[in-house]
């Protein structure tokens, strides 16, 4: 009995050493071969036609982001993906998820501890009346057609690209914080590491490579959707052109966001 166990262990040991050697060789090869190029070739294009785009701006595309409130489960995966993608300093949020709870006396309770980064794993128990409704609202940059941040930036460091993205040139930003004040949606912050303005970019660097934004990629329930409105086969086109309950945040601000919400409730600010 003991001998058979010893034999098993020695076999395991041999297998283990083989695996370590194999891993080392494979790892060394990965270091030699340019990894980036290889990666992109092997990842299928997630936004059709994007890899044919050349030049500084994306032409012939009009991007939209849709958040489906009726789907979001408040798991916080999007927030984790975003924080990992950009190494967002603690206490600042490029995206966050809010939890709305409405009681039977129509009181609205909202919270977003740590921006929802840890996921909403337990229900709120501090409420005085029975709960009648609850839902989650993910927030991110609204990529306004008339962005207040671009309007107020004194040096043009925040700009709107021809393809509709609102981006920040951190080599030009003076860190005055005027854009932080001007954004009606509070999606901006001054990055404590770079001392410049920072915010969600809808993962512009990924989109340029034909990949979906990180948060869209990881959402387990497809509550976050991204696509080209000029592509009539895209999901975002279909949602915005079919009879859905779709709205934007703070429409009276006049900023015309490109971020749309399916099932947006009047309680949401």
């Amino acid at each position: 009995m003991i001998k058979s166990i010893e034999k098993e262990i020695s076999l395991d040991r041999r297998a283990f050493i083989k695996k370590v050697l194999g891993g080392t060789i494979a790892g060394s090869l990965l270091l030699v071969i340019p990894a980036g190029a290889m990666e992109l070739e092997h990842i299928p294009e997630q936004i059709p036609g994007m890899r044919k785009e050349i030049g500084p701006f994306i032409t012939g595309k009009k991007f939209a982001f849709i958040v489906d409130i009726t789907r979001c489960i408040g798991c916080g995966s999007c927030c984790v993906a975003d924080k990992n993608e950009y190494q967002v300093p603690d206490g600042n949020y490029r995206t966050w998820v809010e939890r709305y709870v409405i009681d039977d006396k129509d009181n609205v309770y909202v919270d977003s501890p740590n921006g929802g980064l840890d996921g909403y794993q337990k229900p709120r128990k501090d409420l005085p009346y029975p709960v009648r409704d609850t839902f989650f609202v993910p927030k991110l940059c609204n990529m306004c057609e008339h962005p207040s941040c671009v309007q107020v930036c004194p040096v043009g460091a925040t700009f709107q690209t021809d393809d509709g993205f609102v981006l920040i040139d951190d080599k030009r930003c003076v860190g005055c914080g005027y854009c932080v004040q001007a954004c009606p949606y509070s999606v901006r912050f001054i990055n404590p590491k770079t001392h410049t303005a920072d915010k969600c970019t809808w993962c512009y660097h990924r989109v340029r490579k034909g990949l979906l934004p990180a948060c869209v990629n990881v959402c387990p329930v497809q509550a976050r959707k991204f696509g080209d409105l000029n592509d009539h086969e895209s999901e975002v086109y279909k949602i915005l052109h079919q009879p859905h309950v779709v709205s934007v945040l703070k429409p009276d601000m006049g900023n015309k966001p490109s971020l749309h919400y399916v099932g947006l409730r009047r309680e949401v600010v």
Partner: peptide, 21 residues
Amino acid sequence: HLGHPERAMNMMLTPSPTSAM
């Protein structure tokens, strides 16, 4: 106050005409 005071002169050298600041 500025995060990058060394770039302050950009406000006069390359101002954005739409900015109130």
